[in-house]
């Protein structure tokens, strides 16, 4: 049944990919939103804080683009890694791509250790990378589903 529904979802163009964009940098957040709205078939919700993102997980996002440095403006705000952990605790199937202006290997590794799908540095190419990653995520998910489908019949 599950696989049938999923197939339906894939085949039905009406169902857009639901994307959460989470960044306390309003300018960058808006920029991302514009890019995603123009370059893909996405349903987008944007949140300025990790708290807001977590509060709205019930909207069932497929992918969350999450800023690493969420406690930049408000020092008491929940940071990106904590948000990531909570998202994963809520539903480990939600793919989370971390976004940071720091091009640091330890930040990237930290994100991976916390089960982020990928890590992207904020730059001119960030959007292209994000789009690519989202495509890959869905390809992977589709592969997994196909695999499961065959596994069920083996």
């Amino acid at each position: 049944m599950t696989i049938l529904n999923n197939n339906k979802k894939i085949m039905n163009p009406e169902l857009k990919i639901k994307l959460f964009l989470v960044d306390d940098d309003a300018v960058y957040l808006k920029m991302l939103e514009i890019e995603f709205l123009e370059h893909g078939d996405f349903y987008i919700e944007t949140y300025a804080t990790g708290e807001l993102c977590l509060a709205n997980l019930s909207h069932k996002p497929d992918v969350i683009i999450l800023d690493y440095h969420l406690d930049g403006i408000d020092k008491d705000a929940i940071n990106g890694i904590e948000t990531l952990d909570k998202i994963k605790a809520f539903n480990p199937d939600i793919s989370v791509v971390m976004l940071s202006s720091q091009d640091k290997i330890d930040v990237a590794i930290d994100c991976m250790h916390h089960l982020a799908t990928d890590y992207v540095v904020k730059s001119e190419t960030a959007f292209v990378r994000l789009k690519k990653i989202i495509t890959t995520i869905f390809q992977l998910k589709k592969l997994e589903k196909t695999l499961n489908w065959y596994m069920e019949r083996m």
Binding site: D24, S101, Q102, S123
Partner: peptide
């Protein structure tokens, strides 16, 4: 650090 860090992405935009 955080203030400058937040400025950076908007420069290129």
């Amino acid at each position: 650090y955080t203030a400058v860090h937040k400025m950076i992405p908007s420069f290129s935009i």
